[in-house]
Design a protein around this nucleic acid. Structure first.
Lengths: 113, 113
DNA sequence: TTCATATATTCGGATATCCGAATATATGAA
DNA sequence: TTCATATATTCGGATATCCGAATATATGAA
């Protein structure tokens, strides 16, 4: 074995970093809302901006972050750009995390009283 | 219905915020490593610091973030404080997210070539 | 071309997060 | 008490993230 970097197989620490990058992309309420909205149906940027109640550039920036992580995909349709989930698996993960969240809130409530 | 805040039932936006807070807590490689380490067995702070290869205060700070989100629990044992997962469900979520991550990397690889 | 529309990007200031260093706190032993 | 050990917290500078505002880019219509 040499010291050369293996470009194909990321190291263990790199996997944790990539994993954390995904979580970080999910670490914003608007971006979670985007994913749930897209799980209902593909949407244009301007539709999402209205839905999230944010200016269009803000929506585009959030979309870019999710797109860079390959969690969503975009497709141009004339003037418009339609966004969609890359895979519905992320919704399952988010739903399971909601269960974890509910349990965590219950524990915190118990801890207080 | 009045304008009074309902303290028991968080609003929809608050739920997205809490959900995002959980994700944000997961958005650091060391904190993900902590959760996987604790899924193997409970550990002392100094064990975790050594395992993560970080100074003890850094480990304590990461632990505090996970503890505040009620993802882990602590138990004092004399001088030491033993940390453990609050529930193993978070590991299932992280494992499912790994699958999402693998798929995302595959898509990105395809997109390049 | 020129213009309108939709979207993406850049810029800059405000805020949040991070970590090393120092220190505070808690516990048990002597 | 006093001390040693383990852990938690605070402080401050470096860095990252966020968003509004402005602007750039892409496409289609005229």
């Amino acid at each position: 074995m040499s010291d050369e970097k293996n470009l194909m197989a990321p190291k263990v620490e790199e996997l944790y970093l990539l994993h954390a990058n995904i979580c970080q992309a999910l670490g914003d309420p608007k971006r979670i809302q985007i994913l749930y909205a897209l799980s209902e149906s593909p949407m244009r940027v301007s539709d999402l901006a209205e839905f999230l109640d944010v200016p269009q550039p803000t929506a585009s920036r959030h979309l870019a972050i999710l797109r860079q992580r390959a969690l969503i995909i975009s497709e141009r349709n004339g003037n418009e750009v339609i966004y969609n989930l890359a895979s519905s698996n992320i919704i399952d993960v988010l739903n399971d995390m909601r269960i974890v969240l509910r349990e965590a809130i219950e524990r915190q409530t118990k801890a207080i009283y």
